[in-house]
Design a protein around this nucleic acid. Structure first.
Lengths: 353, 353
DNA sequence: GCACCGTGCTCACAAAACAGT
DNA sequence: GACTGTTTTGTGAGCACGGTG
C-alpha cells in the first residue's frame, strides 16, 4: 500500500508527463498517435500511462476539440428483431471505430418525444445522429428540427439532407415473389408494412413488378403495422379469398399472425395457401409450418451505417454503398398451389409444377 | 437574415449573459434552477436563452462538475424481446431523469469485448454502469474489472458490490407451475434457461418448490439457452417421455421450439402435453396453439433500474425495491392432462379433471 | 520542450442592493 | 444614519486538455 495515492485522485495528463519526464504535450502526442515522437519516449510515456491507470478525460477533450467522438442513435417503435439487431451491430461497428453511441429509444415517435431526445443528444455534442425508425413519420419529425449535425437514416432514401442506408428491400421482395411464381402461383396477395415506411413501400413495389413481369395481376395489397396482430386481422379477411393461393408478407411476425388466422379458418399452409415472410427472425424456423422467408443481413446493415457515417464525417459525401440483397430461405410454408380450381384466373403463360 | 451571426458560432453562456444584461453566473443560476434569482431577471435570462437557441455544453459542465450525467448500458446476447424491452424502457426512464445513456451492446460476452466496452464507457466518465446480460458469465467478467463506478445488474442478486434489480422470477415460476398443477398435471417437466443466468435458476427453484408443495416429484430439468432451437432439441427428447403431460418452459422462444418438436413427433399440444412459457412476447398470442405464458413487466423493470440507480448515485444504498411478479396469461397451450394412462406415476393426492 | 492561451462552465467568494432595526 | 442580516448579483479561479509560438 503506497501512501502517495491517499487522495485517490485520478491521474491527469500532467501526472503522466511528470512520471515519464516529458511535457504534457508529448503525452498528448502519444495519446493521439501523432508522429514525431521518438519510439523510446513514446514507450516511456505509454509505460507511465499504464502505471498510473491514466485515461484521458473525454469531457476535456470534447471541450477543446469540439468533437465528442459520440454518435446519437434514435430508435422508435417496438423492439423488434430487425431494428434491434441493426442497432446492436451498428453499435459494434461504432465501437470498433472508437466511437461511443448515445442511445435514445422510444416506443412512440411523436414530435415532442423526438424533440426532447434530439435535444438531449445535441447537448452531448454528438457528431451525427442515426435514425432507425419503424415509421417514416419519425424521419419527418426529425427533419423539422434543426439538427446542426449530419443525419443518417435507415431508409430507402431520396430525402434531401438525409444520408440513407438500407438493405435492398426491392430485390428481396422480387426474389420472394419470384419464388412463389416459380412454384406455380398466379394469385399472390401481399400484406405490407405501414406505408410511411420506405422498407414497406419498396417491398410493395417489388411485389408489383414481379407480378407484372410474369404477366400476373396484382390485387390491392393489405396494409399492416408489422405486428402479428395485424397479420392475424388481415388473415381473417384473406381466409375467405379462395382465388388466392399465396401471400407475400412484409415481415415474419405478420406471417405468424396470418398463418394463425388461415389455419383457424380451416385453410392449410402450405396445402391451400403458401406464405412467404421477410426478415428470418430466429423464431421463423419453428413456426408451424417452418416459415419460408427472406433473410436480411442486419449485421451488414449495421456496418454499412457506420461506413456511411464515417464517410460523411470525413466529408466524403455520397459513399452510396451497394445495397445488400436479402437471401431466400426455403422452409415449409410455401409450396406449389393446389390444383387449379374454377374461378382461378390466369392472365398469361403456363406454369408446370 | 441578421448578419451578426455570420460566423454561425454556437452561443455560449456569456452571449446569453450579455444579451440579458446580467453576469454569466446569473445565467448559470437560472440554468440550474438555483434560488435567489429575482423572477424578473430569471425571465430576462430565459428569454435570451430562447432567442439565442442556447444549449449549455455538456462537455464543459462535465469537466468542472466531474459528473457526466450519462449512464453506461451494457447488453450482451441476442436482441431478444425481454432484454431489448428492458433496455428501451430503462432508456426512457433515464431520459426522464435527464440522464444520457451510452450503449455497449454485444452478441458475445467474452472478457475481452467486455473489457473494451467498459473502458470505452469509463472514458466517457459514465456515472454508473447498467448490465443487462443473458448469461451471468458477463457479470463475472465485469466484476473482475475495476470499475470505479457503481454497477447495477438485472440479476436476482446476492453478489457483493453489485446492485441488483429484477422481476420476481421465482413467483412467476410458481404461478406457472401452480397453474399446471391446478389443471391436474402431476408429471411436469421443465426446460430452463442457461444455469449461469439467475433468472433461469430462480425459475428452476420456483418449479421445484411448487412441485414439492403439491407433493409431486421433480424429474431432472433440461437446460436450454433461451433459443427456439434449444427448445426444439429438448422437445425431440421429451416427445418420447410418455409419462410427462406438461412442460414449464423458461421462455416463449424455447416454447415455440418445443411445440414444434412435440407436434412433429405426433404429440398434440395441449391434447397430449400442455406447455406454458415465460415472457409473453408479442408473437406468443399467435403460436399454434396460442401460448399460455407468464407476462413480464419489462416497462416496470426498466423504471426500477433507474430508480435503483438514482438511489445509488445519491448514496442511499439498498433501496431494495419490491420485485414485480409476472402475471399469468391463459391462452390455449395448457389444458387438463389426458386421462390417466398405465405407467403414469403419481406420488400423492388425486386430481379430478 | 516550455509557457501560455482558449474551450464553456461551476464553484467559492466578494460585492452590491435592500430590509429592518 | 450607522449597524446587522438577508437576498441578489458579479468576479476570478480552475477543471483537463489541445494548440501556438
Amino acid at each position: 500500500m503506497t501512501n502517495e495515492d491517499e487522495k485517490a485522485r485520478v491521474a491527469n495528463i500532467f501526472d503522466v508527463a511528470r512520471l515519464a519526464g516529458v511535457s504534457h504535450q508529448t503525452v498528448s502526442r502519444v495519446l493521439n498517435d501523432l508522429p514525431n515522437v521518438r519510439p523510446a519516449t513514446r514507450e516511456r510515456v505509454e509505460k507511465a500511462i499504464k502505471q498510473l491507470r491514466y485515461t484521458p478525460s473525454q469531457a476535456a477533450r470534447a471541450l477543446v476539440t469540439r468533437r465528442s467522438r459520440t454518435i446519437g442513435l434514435i430508435t422508435t417503435g417496438n423492439p423488434d428483431f430487425g431494428p434491434s439487431s441493426t442497432a446492436l451491430h451498428f453499435n459494434d461497428a461504432a465501437r470498433d471505430a472508437r466511437y461511443a453511441v448515445s442511445m435514445a429509444s422510444m416506443l412512440d415517435s411523436d414530435a415532442a418525444s423526438l424533440r426532447a431526445a434530439v435535444e438531449l443528444l445535441l447537448r452531448q455534442n454528438v457528431e451525427a445522429i442515426v435514425l432507425i425508425a419503424a415509421h417514416a413519420g419519425a424521419l419527418d419529425a426529425i427533419l423539422s428540427i434543426e439538427l446542426g449535425v449530419p443525419l443518417i437514416a435507415v431508409d430507402a432514401g431520396g430525402r434531401p439532407g438525409v444520408h440513407s442506408v438500407a438493405l435492398d428491400q426491392y430485390a428481396g421482395a422480387r426474389a420472394a415473389v419470384d419464388h412463389l411464381i416459380g412454384l406455380g402461383h398466379t394469385q399472390i396477395r401481399h400484406i405490407s408494412g405501414p406505408l410511411d415506411s420506405t422498407d414497406a413501400t419498396e417491398r410493395v413495389r417489388g411485389w408489383r413488378d414481379s407480378l407484372a413481369a410474369a404477366g400476373l395481376v396484382a390485387r390491392e395489397h393489405l396494409v399492416g403495422d408489422w405486428t402479428p396482430a395485424s397479420g392475424y386481422r388481415h388473415g381473417q379477411v384473406l381466409a375467405d379469398d379462395h382465388d388466392m393461393t399465396a401471400v407475400f408478407v412484409g415481415n415474419d411476425q405478420m406471417s405468424l399472425g396470418l398463418i394463425h388466422a388461415l389455419t383457424s379458418a380451416g385453410r392449410r399452409v402450405p396445402g391451400d395457401v403458401s406464405v412467404i415472410g421477410f426478415d428470418d427472425i430466429p423464431e421463423a424456423e419453428h413456426f408451424a409450418p417452418p416459415l419460408t422467408t427472406m433473410r436480411q443481413d442486419f449485421d451488414g446493415l449495421g456496418r454499412d451505417i457506420m461506413t456511411e457515417l464515417l464517410a460523411v464525417l470525413r466529408d466524403e459525401e455520397a459513399a452510396d454503398l451497394p445495397r445488400i440483397s436479402p437471401t431466400l430461405v426455403v422452409r415449409e410454408s410455401a409450396g406449389p398451389p393446389p390444383v387449379a380450381r374454377a374461378g382461378a384466373t390466369r392472365l398469361s403463360g403456363t406454369v408446370d409444377v
